[in-house]
Amino acid sequence: MTMGIQTESLTKQFANGVTALANVSLSIGQGEFVALVGRSGSGKSTLMNILGGLDHPTSGSVLFDGIRVDYHDRKRLIDLRRTQVGFIFQQFNLLPGLTALENVAYPLLFNYAPRDERNRTAMHLLTLVGLADRGDHLPHQLSGGEQQRVAIARALVGNSRVVLADEPTGNLDSKTSAEIYQVMREVNREKGVTFLIVTHERDLASYCDRTIELRDGKVVS
């Protein structure tokens, strides 16, 4: 069995006729730290959404550790998001009414984890991303970089084996961006979590093991 993510002839066509992905076949090994680059509209976010079970392909398939994802099985998709895939967004997307600790613990609420365990796990991950002393801060009390660290911790909280980061440094300055990449890299090395990171910035892509480039919905390198 092949560990990691594989896509086979993945195609996504929207209702308006636009083809976002055309026969995309790729393979990302478990524990890889991969950059996904391409121009705007090249299909990067669509690919991420399909891999994360937020969207479904028109044709083709996705395999996690050799197991085909059934996009018609809603329970399976929810389970995928709960236990296998974590998301990091450009806008951080923390819940404004919750503290940093609560934001990290939030996904576990839907996983039937007891409160103490949720908080313990969340605090452990906040420590991992260097925010142990910021647990009781609300998002607006944190800097952009800190918010994205919280988002990284949240992406990992369900013991995710894969983190899909959609332009995680798009809203950060270059120094903070580098710090975020370092944090993700450390998590990748320490926990063996696979990272697929969408980025426009070639120099940040150099932090990654390899780069996959999409152009007009196709893999070009």
């Binding site: 998001r81 819940l95 839907f110």
Partner: peptide
Amino acid sequence: TREIGITMAVGASEHD
């Protein structure tokens, strides 16, 4: 809207 989307993205079911 965004919060609900995030909630679903982090593993909440429609039931949740």
